[in-house]
Every structure is written in C-alpha cells, then in structure tokens.
Design a protein around this nucleic acid. Structure first.
Lengths: 263, 263
DNA sequence: GATAGAGGATCCCCTTAGGGGAGAGTCAAC
DNA sequence: GTTGACTCTCCCCTAAGGGGATCCTCTATC
C-alpha cells in the first residue's frame, strides 16, 4: 500500500495528475482511508499508471484513454488519432509556408486573409471606360438606372458591391469594367442593367490603402501569395471600394479591398 | 459609423471576437456611446481588422499580435513563430511514428514510456547464477551483507533496485548478473559488496506481467520499439522486480519493470 | 508527551481565444 | 404602443492539469 507521494515517484506521474486521474475515473486508488481521506495505491497499479502515461505520451485525451480502458478498440482510437495528427501536420505545413512567404517577401504592406463570401443575386452592368478616373462618375449612374427600373428593389445587407475587369489584362485606357451590386431579389432588366446569381465564393482578401495608381502592387502581391501558398485562382478578381473620393478628403485615406476567388 | 453587427459582417469577425479584441486592446471601436454602451466602428478600421485576422490565420497569439501592433519587429515575431511551428511539426512526426509503430505491431501487450531516472549512489554485487530461479535466494543475502558492513546505511527514497546482465547475450544457465540498490551515501566495501555512482539516465520503460519465462517478449518489444522510434540504446537494460514470489501467490500477478537506457 | 516538519487533503483561481446563453436595455419599423 | 432585431454586460465553459492557501495527519525527535 503506497501513499500518493510514493506512488507518484514510482510511476513518474505528479501528485496533481494522480488526483486528477482519480477525479476522471481513470485510475482509482486501491483504497482510501475513510477518516483521513488518504489515498493508497498498490504496486500492481503501476502497470495501469504506465499504460495511462504511455497513452498521454501519444497525446491521447483523457476521454480517449477512458474509452480504451473501458474496452474500446484501441486500434480504432489510434488510427483516428493518427488521422487527426496527419491533418494537424498538414495545417502546420500550410502555416509554415505562409510565414516563410511573408518572411521572404520582406514587405508587410499587405496581409492576405481567406474568407468566404456568401452567394448573392446581383445587378450588374458593363462598359468600356477611357481611363480609371471615370469610374466614379459611371458607378452612381448605374444605381439610378436600376432604381428607375426597379423602384422597390433593395440592396442586400451587408452591402456588397464590387468591380471586375473581364479583360484579364492590365490596360491604362479602354478599360473594360463590370460593376456588380448585391440585391435582395431579381428585377426588371434592360440593355444596361442585368441580373445574375453569384455562388458562394472563397476569396483571398487584401486591403489597399491610398491612391489607385499603386494598386498594381496589391495585385502583384496577392497573385504571388496565392501561387506560393497553393491556391488556385478561380475567377475574376473583385475590387470593393470602401473609402474613396466620395467620403475622404485625403487620397491617403482611400481604402480598397481586393478579392481573389480561389479554390 | 458602423454598429458592431455591421462591422462584423464586413470584417468577417464574429461579434464575440470584436468585443474580445476590444477587451484585449487590439481593436478599439472608434467611439462608444456613453449612455447605451453601443460600439461604433469606422470603415477605416476594416484594415486593422483584416490585419488582425491575417495574424490570427497565421496562428499568432493575441499577445504576439498586440506586440506587432505596438511596433515590435514583425519579422522577429514571425521567425520565432516559424521556429515554434517547426518544432511542433517534429513532435507531431514523432507521435505519428510511434502510433504507426503500435498499429503495425498489432499487439498492445506492452506500452513503452519514456522517463528520466535520477542520479544515485548504489551498492552493487555481481555473481554468476546457475539459473534464473536462484535470483530470489541471492538478492536478499546481499542486503544482509551490506547491512553487516554498514549498519547505518539507508536505502534511498524512493527505493530503486535493479538487476543488470553484463553478458549482453541471453543465457539459460551460468547467468552473469549484477544487482544494484540505491542508497543515501557510500559505505564500506568488501569483495562482495561495492559502491558506485550512476548518473541521471533517460530510459524507455515497460512493465512485464507474469512469469519470467515470457520476459523475452518484453525485451524483443522494447528493442524493436527503440529501433523503430529512433532511440539509441545507451547502456545495459535494467530489471526492477516489483511484485514477485515474495508477495504474490499467483505467478500471473508478478510484475517486472524493464528499463532500457537510451539517448 | 509535546512539537516540528513533511506530506496529505480540499478548495479556488489560472492558463487560450473566444462560444453559448441569460437577462436587460436600445433602436427602428409598423 | 408594440414587436422583433440588435446590443449590452455578466457568468460559465473548454483540456489537462499547475500553483498556492489553508487545514489535517503522520512520524521522528526531544
């Protein structure tokens, strides 16, 4: 009959752990003094202690160990655990690749995040603009057009409004542009404003601060980031204008989100 | 000015997380209504939110993110994180290798654990025995011999007593055996009983239950286990007799610990 | 027999990054 | 005025024990 301290030294488990295992009904002392509450263990319990310790060293949880001791299929538990560990290893590898990407990139100007944009119904319009600065005249006109056609149509909450550049190539002039805005339902179309559904989309997102003329850096960054981290581009990049000339005096305060759909 | 729910939808952070980040002083709302307690955010804070979210997706802790936002060297933080992740990956790999070893081994009869035995002073004696069953006559005689030489010498607490087989090969007869027992100090020697110091030793430990004639399986297991998991044997295997003929009637209750020193 | 020190007991708080829910107050629309 | 959607604060929960406070028990020594 060993007191808890002796059993602790022999089993190489801390006293705290032994008391915890009793509470969890993993390893019950052979006897407990009714008056003093002292726990007493038998040497034969060292075997159980070793089994528990071995399981903990395999990083099995208390619940898993309890299941095993209750006769669950150890092989099953272990192969489940192996699967979980493999998944964890993959995640760690992905994180490492991202961090190394950032460490090599040197510039922390942009930070990519992954998010999922919900499916939506949008009204959209396309045109070809002489140059970028015409965008902010064009977009408000679309809203009016749409409201004229569909007076009762509402924008979706939260607002989601973005531009795409179907050209695929960068141009300084004659820019083909498509503007999209999420709404609550389809409505009447005409030859300017049409409707379509966009599906739920996983995107890489970065925020670009400042004037639009340096937005190319942001594109460069996000494309390289995607490539380095094993993302497959899956659609046209979306630009969301958050702060701009309409609400910020200083060009340095303009804020644009760039979303790259990925798989 | 966005209410917390709107900001949550735009930033893709939960309301709970936003409140938590305020408590942690990571992301303070641009203003808080003095009377209602409502938090109000500005669109420009989406950028901060995205930065925080990006950091969390790199699995950086709140403390690390706060350090970065306070101007700490992001590169340093990231390379520390990369180091930690690499270490974690190694640990995961080790666990996976152990689990696969167990899954392939099929038999769960033995469970290896790693532990560290403290340094100790031992008295020891060697002899050659006709066969294994003579051990239990021989060992008690050593204790008497030692007490005769050193009446005041005490055994170390916890008791640590083990046998080694310096032969290195398995024999059925003419077994060379060395018995060691940890004591509190050196004492007088004679030609039977001598003293020496043993250093702190990392060992792999398994428990063998039952008669000694099947102990070979335990040895086989522990050696294969060590080999499969990249341990280097670093000394003679130690046998600790925990339960045996002296206190257990049934041979099935005998319990022996086998310790393999490893690097 | 008294006492000191070691070791045992229980109980409470702490760790991460928020999640879940209760109860109460606020805001906008109908 | 009411209803329903939001929002607030406050409390408890996670896994596996660690750290510490306070009180009790055992053993050795004087």
């Amino acid at each position: 009959m060993l007191k808890i301290g002796d059993f602790s030294r022999l089993s190489h488990l801390t006293v705290k752990a032994l008391r915890f295992y009793e509470k969890e009904k993993l390893l019950i002392p052979a006897s407990v003094d009714e008056w003093t509450g002292y726990r007493f263990y038998e040497t034969s319990q060292l075997e159980d202690a070793a089994r528990i310790k071995a399981c903990r060293q395999l990083d099995l949880s208390i619940d898993e160990i309890r299941a095993i001791l209750s006769g669950a299929d150890m092989m099953q538990v272990l192969s489940d655990k192996a699967k979980a560990l493999s998944e964890q290893r993959e995640k760690t590898d992905i994180l490492l690749s991202r961090i190394h990407h950032m460490l090599e990139g040197k510039e922390m100007k942009y930070q990519a995040t992954e998010k999922v944009m919900p499916a939506a119904t949008v009204f959209y319009a396309e045109t070809v603009l002489e140059n970028y600065s015409d965008i902010m005249q064009w977009i408000p006109s679309l809203g009016e057009e749409c409201r004229k056609l569909n007076p009762h149509l509402r924008c979706a909450e939260p607002e989601y409004e973005f531009c795409e550049y179907p050209d695929g190539e960068y141009k300084e002039h004659d820019i083909q542009i498509r503007h999209n805005q999420a709404v609550t339902a389809r409505g009447v179309e005409n030859d300017v404003v049409k409707f379509r559904e966009i599906p739920e989309t996983k995107v890489l997102s970065i925020y670009h601060k400042g004037a639009y003329d340096s937005i190319g850096e942001a594109y460069a960054f996000i494309m390289k980031y995607a490539e380095d981290n094993g993302y497959q581009p899956a659609g046209l990049t979306r630009e969301c204008y958050i702060d701009g000339i309409w609400n910020k005096e200083s060009v340095d305060d303009w804020l644009t989100e760039i979303q790259l759909p990925v798989r």
